[in-house]
Design a binder for these strands. Sequence first.
DNA 1: TTTTAAACATACCATTCAGTCTGTTTCAGA
DNA 2: TCTGAAACAGACTGAATGGTATGTTTAAAA
Lengths: 209, 209
Amino acid sequence: MSEKGERSREHILATAKRLVMDKGFAGTSIDDILKAAGVSKGAFFHHFRSKADLASQLMRWHSAQDIRMFRDLAARAEALHDDPYEQLQFYLKAFEGYISNPTEPSRGCMYAVYTYESEAFDEDVNDVVAETLREWSAIYIRKFQEVIDRYPPARPVTAKELAEMIVSLIEGGLILQRAYGNTAITARQSEHFRAYLDMLFAPSMAASN
Amino acid sequence: MSEKGERSREHILATAKRLVMDKGFAGTSIDDILKAAGVSKGAFFHHFRSKADLASQLMRWHSAQDIRMFRDLAARAEALHDDPYEQLQFYLKAFEGYISNPTEPSRGCMYAVYTYESEAFDEDVNDVVAETLREWSAIYIRKFQEVIDRYPPARPVTAKELAEMIVSLIEGGLILQRAYGNTAITARQSEHFRAYLDMLFAPSMAASN
DNA sequence: TTTTAAACATACCATTCAGTCTGTTTCAGA
DNA sequence: TCTGAAACAGACTGAATGGTATGTTTAAAA
């Protein structure tokens, strides 16, 4: 990242990420990664002590990228809009744009891959997965709470359950997307969720104007 | 299933299913399955030509079980209730009971496992996954359509998008469930979805009485 | 009782895999 | 220019893995 030496490590991580998302972690051999990345075994084992170490570094690297993106998106939403509901809508729409980007269609979710092979990983790696998902939820929870506080919902809902719902919809959408070979499903789920939010909050928003 | 010889095949399939759901397909070796099932290599390769053939038979076997369960649930719902909305509620609640069964807590979803390792499987196996998910959706779609026809929803929704939503919520919930080690999440998502349905249909149900 | 095929058991084989070992190159600093 | 360490290259190894070959048991039909 900072030095030139990081280039190769990041290149290996990026290649591994692509392969692991396509074939799973156990289904991806080190040789597969070497071949796809065009690096030697010496280079690989210079940066990673073992395949388990790759798993750990890969998840931490990917998690750091994601958390940065979540926070960037949240910061942009807050810079552009004052109203928490508008911030939320912006955030959700921005994510829809990101997930259905046609140049780099989403292959799925790294956390789902790790979750479904959790037995293969060290406990601390699984903890990173859970913590990243929690961090992601937390961004939603904060925003939902602000919205709920300002616009009493038509039905009593908690910020936590709404956050859990959108995360579930996205994770589930990514699975259906892969299974059906249709890259539009997750964004559609998010749109539908926004329509649900409209039902919940539109009445009291109208009343407050 | 019918003959005694089927016992061993089914025993291998059931064992493989458990292991594959815990460790993924690539992460489960044939020897793992032999050891866990207490059968010999000869027995295994008598019933399955290769590991890929196991993958195929396992998915078809599992899919057949699931589809039978979906249809049984739907039939029971229709036997117990006349009103399509009550049938739907029964169906969803029954599934919640099944998924959060404490004696056999759900390890996740087989289709998700296969989806995230899809590169490893033959095209026809991936087709079985997609078709089973569609079959599952179709049961929801039929019921949602009946409900929509009888009770005009508060917001224009299609049966298809509602079906896609509950399937996504369940799939996503199963991931979060594994990641967090909390076996209650999927059932909670389903409950939340039922609350959403109430918002959609309760007004016109009240009007029709 | 004999025959026959399915159902199993086990030793074995070739390949792949993660990981090691022994170097060579690169390049920053003295 | 020299030194030393980081970065890399690639041949090699032992264990694991998928798969085979060959033989034995079982059980039902003839």
